[in-house]
Design a protein around this nucleic acid. Sequence first.
DNA 1: ATACTGACCCTGG
DNA 2: ACCAGGGCCAGTA
Length: 136
Amino acid sequence: MARSDEAAAFFATVYSAVREIPEGKVTSYGHIAKLIGTPQRPRQVGVCLKHLSHDAGARFNNVNVPWQRVINAKGAISQRSQPSGARNQAAALQAEGVTVATGALGELTVDFAEYGWFPRSLPSEEESELDDDDSE
DNA sequence: ATACTGACCCTGG
DNA sequence: ACCAGGGCCAGTA
């Protein structure tokens, strides 16, 4: 498998993971990176979303992939080159019923405690403070 | 081909 | 609590 193919596979994997985010929920780039087994590349996740196709005929596009449900670890919508994009993302989230607040610096934030999506597939998070049952 | 950028995140001071 | 530094690597110039 050539490197370019691996890159394409990475894109597809990211898009598939993003698709798993339930409507009305949000998660972080880093979380997506962990889910797909590459916890050290949250930046590349952002690259994937940036390059998401606008063509409705594409396998993955900005309609069938809920890109708006991915925000940064600080619980804020990442600012990008075009300020309108962040606003656009906030609007898309609010359309799903997600409350978006505005910070003192004008940053658009979402409350993880309320809308965060964090599945338990993470290897590290397993050793939780569950009750007792260590049957293993 | 080389160099800089970036829709990020974590660890230290 | 905030700021700096380091790592990551596909895109873009």
